[in-house]
Design a protein around this nucleic acid. Structure first.
Lengths: 186, 186
DNA sequence: TAGGTCATGTAAAGAGTTACATGATTTT
DNA sequence: AAAATCATGTAACTCTTTACATGACCTA
């Protein structure tokens, strides 16, 4: 997967391992991210397979290995991108604790759900900022798909927060026995 | 994470490694899943830490190692469940290809998006079935949180499909230059 | 001149899956 | 009698992050 994402970025122009990481952080990190520890070895592998080549660039004393995609690399990327989109049930770690919240006192449950919203909110705000920046800098039609994935990200965060809020409301209003206190009733 | 999920299931009653996997498949697999190759070693580790104990059960010639949570295990679980909910940006692998769809002809893009919807639809239908089954078998108030995570799952799948449909509609109606064919215009 | 960022890379550790191995029992 | 399921477990492999190592350059 990572190798193809790198090829994808290289389809848009040559770049270095370091800059690749910057691009990812800026543009895909809300649905895909990678560390230097995986990017550099991936570039090495891509080089071995001759899907990319690099030239050493020294711009005003700054050393960089600038990678370019090869014709073989383009072919590999085009083959990959045309394949059907696989769907893997994606891990939603934040649901794991909530699944077992029957063991937590209701007040604590509400507090933690509110806490989760407060963690997600700044992430959402940040992505909104990125989206607005992008819509000013670039033609939305030209970058239609990238723009759409940002909208996905924002709406996804909103979806989670809205779901949390619904729970909080229900927990607060249904004063009757939502048995959210298996912990206490024991 | 896996170890705590196992503890969570054991909080609800004793069970075997094999049945643990069945429970996960039935109830958490849409946001968390694990294979036998990780469950059995996890149970071993939990045993080493004395958070669980097991007894060998032979019910009518059928051998099982039935695990129970210990008092120490309960304490560890209660500590974990009370902690704030962490939020990790979760991988959404299905977005990766779409992010680079500028390199795909529009018709192919639409076809693949439709394909993705067709992959998700049965998964959603399946979860709806599970939800209905659960609401008949159990008291929704008693299993409020588990029910809520199912609603999350269903709405999450719907969100993705709806996002895909929006894209398809826009791609089909905006006959003007959505530059979704960088591939061809080169 | 100290700390931050730029830039590349490696080694160890973590967390998991896949595939295999085993053997009993149950269904077709 | 063969195939599927029940039940446990291990070994190899994959993919990843974290932490470290290195060195140059930039800025307060």
């Amino acid at each position: 997967m990572l190798e193809f994402i790198i090829l994808g970025f290289l389809m848009c122009g040559e770049t270095s391992g370091y800059d690749l990481k910057q691009w990812m952080t800026k543009s895909t990190s809300y649905f895909f991210d990678a560390s230097f520890g995986s990017i550099y070895p991936a570039l090495k592998r891509l080089g071995d397979k001759q899907l990319v080549i690099f030239k050493e660039s020294v711009e005003g004393s700054k050393y960089k290995k600038v990678y370019q995609i090869t014709e073989t690399g383009k072919e590999a990327f085009m083959k990959w991108i045309a394949e059907p989109i696989a769907f893997e049930k994606s891990k939603q770690d934040h649901l794991v604790k909530i699944f077992f919240y029957e063991f937590l006192p209701k007040e604590k449950a509400i507090a933690n759900l509110k806490g989760l919203i407060e963690v997600i909110q700044p992430i959402e705000k940040n992505l909104i900022g990125q989206k607005e920046e992008a819509s000013q800098k670039y033609d939305v039609y030209q970058f239609y798909y990238r723009y759409a994935t940002m909208v996905y990200g924002i709406d996804y965060y909103r979806f989670i927060m809205s779901w949390c809020n619904d729970m909080i409301t229900k927990l607060e209003t249904d004063t009757e026995t939502i048995r959210s206190e298996r912990f206490n009733t024991k």
